[in-house]
Design a protein around this nucleic acid. Structure first.
Lengths: 143, 143
DNA sequence: TAGATTGTTAATCGATTAACAATC
DNA sequence: TAGATTGTTAATCGATTAACAATC
């Protein structure tokens, strides 16, 4: 498989948001040129980016917004469940653990790490706080 | 002034971290090749990136770590004080407001915005929570 | 069919790298 | 001076864009 550049992936994620918002507005069909204008780039760029992954449009018509959004979600792995580790359990870490949007997007926090010895071993939601040094081992075990 | 690419800026910020950690280890001089290896890139890339902003090294010797770190800090605007607005005052927003590292890095939160009507007008640390719709106006007034 | 827009090739542009004279 | 490494030019590589045949 040919190497896909970072820039392409980043743009794909922008197209995804564009499609989401157009779908909310009730738009069911969109051209590469419309997507391009909404992202201040060229339509050739949009078509090129998509072409790395397949052919999703209809010549003369453009793209079905729902379908294209769905296909980009697949490309970006947005449908998968991800088991993730949280590193740092201070105020921000705690807030992130409670941030439901992650769960909704398929990111499930399955481990917590911190370097404060007084926090080690503490139990939160079935999770025990681990030493940061252990992070690599824990992740390796999951592979 | 010639346009500097995003990639260059992103790398500069990596060099900055590399220098910080080398300085901590007591390293006082570094070559473009050493910086490159620590960042998995070529030495030509490092020298090219720096060359957009001036000449910082000594031929035959390399770069003084302290000096180069300082000069990159200037390039990246790390010495400036920044007045910033916080958008969203839920759990994460609250944690970010209390995160001292921002203040230390020169980012001073001077306004808070949220879209929850029950939060509007609340007073936190001398700051009144504003409507998100007002964010652009508030920022514009600062310019 | 005529008009529109895709998917893709070829041309262009910009970023990375190799090479080397300058010089510490 | 000899060795090392910079700063910069020129060559290479890869990403963006223009152009257009295919086709809805």
């Amino acid at each position: 498989m040919k190497k896909i550049s970072d820039s392409t992936i980043r743009r794909l994620s922008k197209y995804y948001r564009t499609l989401s918002s157009q779908i909310e507005k009730g738009v069911s069909t969109i051209s590469s040129n419309e997507i391009a204008q909404l992202n201040s780039i060229t339509s050739a760029q949009v078509r090129k980016d998509l072409s790395f992954f397949g052919t999703f449009g209809k010549r003369g018509l453009g793209y079905n917004t729902e379908q294209l959004k769905d296909q980009i979600a697949n490309i970006l792995g947005l449908k998968k469940e991800w088991r993730v580790g949280l590193v740092g359990f201070g105020n921000i870490g705690r807030a992130l653990l409670r941030y439901d949007e992650f769960k909704k997007q398929g990111f499930n926090i399955k481990a917590i790490f911190d370097n404060d010895p007084t926090k080690l071993g503490q139990q939160i939601d079935n999770l025990k706080i681990d030493k940061i040094e252990d992070a690599c081992n824990v992740v390796a075990k999951e592979k």
